[in-house]
Nucleic acid binder design. Sequence first.
RNA 1: CGGGGUGUAGCGCAGCCUGGUAGCGCAACUGCUUUGGGAGCAGUAGGUCGCAGGUUCAAAUCCUGCCACCCCGACCA
Length: 567
Amino acid sequence: MKTSAFHLATQREVPADAEIVSHQLMLRTGMIRKLTSGIYTWTPLGLKVLRKVEQVVREEMDRSGSLEMLMPSVQPAELWQESGRWDDFGPLLLKMADRAGREFAFGPTHEEVITEFARAEIRSYKQLPICFYQIQTKFRDEIRPRFGVMRAREFLMKDGYSFHMDEACLGRFYQVMFDTYTRIFERLGLEFKAVEADSGAIGGAVSHEFHVLADSGEDQIAHVPGSRYAANVERAEAVAEGEANAPQENLQLVDTPDARTIADLVKQFDVPIEKTIKTLVVEASRSSGQALVALLLRGDHELNAVKAEKHPDVASPLRMATEEEIRDAIGAGPGSLGPFRLPIPCIADRQVALMSDFAAGANSDGQHYFGLNWGRDVALPRTADLRNVVAGDPAPDGSGALELLRGIEVGHIFQLGRKYSEAMNAVVMDENGRAVHPAMGCYGIGVSRIVAAAIEQNHDDNGIIWPEPMAPFDIMILPLNGHKSHRVRELAEKFYGELRAAGREVLLEDRNLRAGVMFADAELIGLPHQLVIGDRGLDKGVVEYRRRGGESREIAIDDAVGILTVD
RNA sequence: CGGGGUGUAGCGCAGCCUGGUAGCGCAACUGCUUUGGGAGCAGUAGGUCGCAGGUUCAAAUCCUGCCACCCCGACCA
């Protein structure tokens, strides 16, 4: 491809509403253009990248024995009413009506459609196991789309669904998918990590997420370097460390008029933060028979909402009590709460149970207790895992100390079980002629998100540094002053022809740009290999080879094509 | 949906407070010069100032309503 004939629409200035670097670079390179909030056009340049990702995904899914198909993006409401998700999915569903007033949704995922398909097509255990997948445009009416295609409303996703007679078979295929995903991200040249995950709203027991590692990632991952343990922080079990010590200090009530937060307390009273307890009041579950419940955490720890709302006595979704509710129930404001003489039930984090001689609010405004101890002063409440793990915590499997990484979720695999096959009554006949509900797995990859994540992981101040398997072209030829110098132009054309004949995808810069503009554009677009041809080099019989983000050296003219066609 | 913010040329912005001629940089187009790291000079073109209503002799500017977009929070590939 020649740049003069390609729609290369690079921009020098950073668009004002692009917050993260991948979004900025995708706009500046002209890979995408926003049509409206969360909805983007992929330009020829962007689409080339998207297709490369898609193709790797397709090849590896095919290799796994999964069968590609294409389901409709518009789905009838009845199907969603049948699974119960017409309402459950709520505002995330983009709903519409046809001329007859019949309701439809633009598919945010395809469990209903595939289950409907399977119940019609799959009748016998002899047809199982089987896995169907598609690469399809989805629409989720996200409350707040952001970061370009990273969290768009319309996006491209690979979704796969497998059907099995029993859990053992599902478990085996799940492992095949795990390995397939690993191959996909390896082939794409991305640094990634597979982690244990919370299965969230989709349901099911076993679940793993695949994250592209990047400092700007929205998810936190806990892992032990060199061990197999890795989990999303949402899920990573926090193990209490150390043992309970006997009381050393006497209980004392202290006036703390200016200490409304743990930070104030630490600063004003010179108490180590590890010796403080914070008390968070949240709405209690209906089944607990209470209105509110207090959660106790060590001062430097953070509440994990996913864990908290799984507790039977905590309302789900989690809701923090208002100041008014707290005052009504306890008689003190949120800055002065603690377990001592607390009039509402409480649950302590596991680590809290091991604390001694600690400080906490006195349930009276402007007062705290110091030197509190379990047993002696307050009965130890029920304990639970309520907090986020922090770096240095022991891993739950005993493999070592946790480190935290940031990641972008690009893949998620689930063992769904029979949730959908039962809800929608998909059955197959087993060997004994009995109708059974098949077990299902579901496997997603955010294809368009991968493009943004790859940029997030691979860029510098000058632009994108494409991993070779995702690059829109392999090689960029940069003829300097080509419109004046015949020999530069001719050599550029010669390389262009020969490299293309050798199967490389080549972009020839033939727009007669100044050197600076040409280099700046080439680096912005970020193709892995650049070949710079100039009169200065030709006098010496050389051209310049540059690896984007790496080396730069002069090579003999006759060696150039050979060097660039070695894999 | 709650909180905050912004809508002026393709992109980035000024002008608004204190009403009166719509402006700057980049990009685009033409010509000449320049040409190994985002050139110079000269010229050209491009605007329902988000939309609707109101106040006024006069509205980008003041008032009211609406819409869109962005940021922070709860959700997700």
